[in-house]
């Protein structure tokens, strides 16, 4: 939710189109609203390079990749073992392990739980990253608002 006292841009078109606008003002002369600027035109005061160079930010990036890279590698391997097993090792996959259920069925079913569990692990880790991220933004005196 944004705060009700968001500053109104100079070229506000509220009167013309009956609501606050988030699009560039008429013609090519006026300045664009902040989020309409291309990277070239961006002159906002955030010091991106200073944040990017900060050791806490670099640590945050490393922590993210330390989970995301192995987790991605794991689910890709786990998933492709299914078509590989069914395609080239049918004897093994057709072995019955629980009543009439064979390894092929149970392994396919386990993929659903694998996906849910990995998503759960990611969400828990991401909640920690959110906290570090907020601390980082506070350190630089900037916020989402």
């Amino acid at each position: 939710m944004s705060s009700p006292d968001t500053p109104t841009p100079d070229h506000d078109l509220t009167g013309i189109i009956a609501s606050q606008t988030d699009i560039a003002p008429l013609g090519r002369g006026g300045s664009k609203p902040e989020h309409e600027r291309t990277a070239d035109e961006d002159i906002d005061p955030v010091e991106w390079a200073r944040i990017a160079g900060d050791s806490d930010f670099q640590a945050l990036l490393r922590r993210k990749l330390r989970l995301v890279i192995p987790a991605t590698a794991f689910f890709i391997v786990y998933y492709f073992l299914l078509p590989i097993g069914v395609g080239w090792f049918p004897g093994l996959m057709e072995r019955k392990v629980w009543g009439d259920l064979n390894i092929a069925y149970l392994y396919a079913l386990s993929q659903f739980f694998m996906a849910w569990i990995l998503a759960g692990i990611y969400v828990v880790a991401a909640a920690r990253w959110d906290r570090s991220q907020n601390a980082l933004l506070k350190k630089f005196g900037v916020s989402h608002q």
Binding site: M1, S2, P4, T6, Q20, D22, E34, H35, A39, D42, D44, V46, W48, A49, I51, A52, G53, F57, L60, L61, K64, Q133, L136, L137, V142, H144
Partner: peptide, 19 residues
């Protein structure tokens, strides 16, 4: 690139919900 990296990972300067 550093700007995109900071934006993508912190949400700084991201589009807000409208009122």
């Amino acid at each position: 690139f550093t700007e995109l990296q900071v934006r993508a990972n912190t949400g700084l300067g991201a589009e807000k919900a409208t009122e």
